[in-house]
Simulated assay, not measured.
Amino acid sequence: MKEQLNAISETVIGAAIAVHRELGPGLLESAYEACLEYELIDRGYSVERQLSLPVRYRGVSVDCGFRIDLRVNGLVIVELKAVERLERIHEAQVNTYLRLTGLHLGLLMNFNVTRMIDGVKRIVREFPE
C-alpha cells in the first residue's frame, strides 16, 4: 500500500508540474483542476473531480457542501489552490478531508508559484506500513 500511495503521489506531482509548465501561474484554480484531471486520466489514472464529502454527525450523514477537488485512484486526495501562499488552514482542510474519508495521503498544491515544486505539500495521516 505504501509503495502504491507513493507512486500515485509522484505521478500527480509530475502531472501538476506538466500542467504548470504549460499554463504558468495566474489562472483560476478551476482551470488547473480541469487540466490536471485531464493529465492524470491521460496517464491512465482514475480521477474523481469535485467529489461530495458528507460529514457524519451523531450517526447521520449531513451534506455540508464540502467538495474534494480530486481523488486519484480512490486513494489520494488532491486539493488545489491558486493563492499568494499556502496557509495553515489549507493544511487543516486536507487533514480534515483525510480524516473524514479514512484515507492516508493528501497533496496540497498551489499553482500560483514560479516553480510548481515549491507549491506542493504532502500531507500524511497514519501512513500504512
Rank of each mutant, 00 (worst) to 15 (best):
R58M: 11
I77D: 01
V62H: 10
M116A: 11
G24D: 09
D63T: 12
I13Q: 09
H90M: 03
L27W: 11
N112K: 05
L23F: 12
I41P: 05
Q4Y: 09
I8T: 08
A92H: 07
P25V: 04
L23R: 11
E37Q: 14
E3N: 12
I117H: 12
G65K: 09
L105V: 15
E126A: 14
V83S: 01
T11R: 00
S52I: 13
G26S: 12
I68D: 04
F127S: 05
H90C: 02
G24R: 08
L36A: 07
M109V: 15
I89N: 05
A18L: 10
K121V: 14
Q4H: 10
Q50S: 09
V113D: 01
S61G: 00
C64W: 05
L28G: 08
V124E: 15
Y38H: 14
A18D: 13
L98Q: 06
L80I: 11
G74I: 07
L40V: 11
G106T: 07
R122C: 10
H104M: 09
T114R: 14
S46Y: 02
D118R: 13
V94K: 04
L107A: 04
V62P: 04
R49Q: 15
V60C: 10
F127R: 07
A31E: 09
G24Q: 12
E87K: 12
N110F: 00
Y97Q: 07
T101A: 07
Y38F: 15
E129A: 14
I77L: 13
N73Q: 10
E91W: 02
T11A: 04
V60T: 12
C35T: 11
L86W: 04
G106W: 00
L98N: 07
R88V: 10
V120S: 06
L75F: 03
N112P: 05
I68E: 02
V12N: 02
R58G: 03
T96E: 09
V19R: 02
A31D: 05
A31S: 13
T11Y: 00
R71T: 11
G74P: 06
E126H: 13
L53N: 03
N110R: 04
S9P: 00
V78D: 01
L5H: 01
E91F: 03
V72S: 05
G14F: 02
E3A: 14
R56E: 14
E10K: 12
E39A: 14
R88P: 04
L28R: 11
R49D: 08
L40Y: 06
G59P: 06
A7E: 11
S61I: 08
E29L: 08
G102S: 03
M116W: 02
